[in-house]
Nucleic acid binder design. Structure first.
Length: 168
DNA sequence: TACATAAGAATAG
DNA sequence: CTATTCTTATGTA
């Protein structure tokens, strides 16, 4: 498993990938989070190796995304290292939300499990692939932001980024 | 409209 | 089993 750390306007992103695809794209706001993530791999007995070169494609896409250009990350292959079948279904469904559009926990729940709104939220809170899986495009049914474990500021930032794209 | 509370699905400990 | 979660629906004022 290879990893690198990417700078972006609000902080840094920890990226990890196997030879099969991207596994982690996690927002980090302090050193402690880096340790949490590396410990996670240690517990799973997965060796981590820093390697920036392995992320040429990803860094390019992220740079384009943060510069305000439309970027869906749909070309990236993913390799889930964690997550139950249910969570993966939620993540894949979330990934279908197009750039600049938003959905709600309710409508996702309708597709997967009729009244599992909260389980949807819980599954998204465990989203290992921030931005790649656009969990920030999922809002409460009344249009308010709802919650966001990585920080509402980040959610707002991402939404505004995509909104500006629509106006341009 | 605003606020408290219940309901409901899945997961982690 | 209990607590927790990026929710929603309902009741009450």
């Amino acid at each position: 498993m290879f990893y690198t750390i990417l700078d972006f306007p609000l902080g840094q992103i920890f990226l990890a990938k196997s030879n099969k695809g991207l596994s982690v794209a996690s927002f980090i706001k302090n050193k402690r989070q880096i340790k949490e993530i590396t410990d996670f791999f240690k517990n799973k007995d997965i060796p981590l190796e820093p390697n920036l070169k392995k992320f040429q494609e990803e860094t390019k896409l992220f740079a384009r995304y943060f510069s305000g250009k439309k970027e869906d990350f749909t070309s990236l292959h993913l390799d889930f290292i964690s997550g139950t079948p249910f969570q993966r279904r939620v993540w894949l469904e979330t990934r279908k939300i197009p750039y600049g559009k938003t959905s709600s926990y309710k409508s996702l729940a309708r597709k997967l499990k009729n009244r599992g709104y909260r389980s949807i939220g819980q599954a998204l809170s465990r989203n290992p692939l921030l931005i790649v899986i656009p969990c920030h495009r999922v809002l409460s049914s009344d249009g308010s932001l709802g919650g966001f474990s990585a920080g509402l500021k980040l959610k707002e930032f991402l939404l505004r980024l995509e909104k500006n794209q629509l106006q341009a």
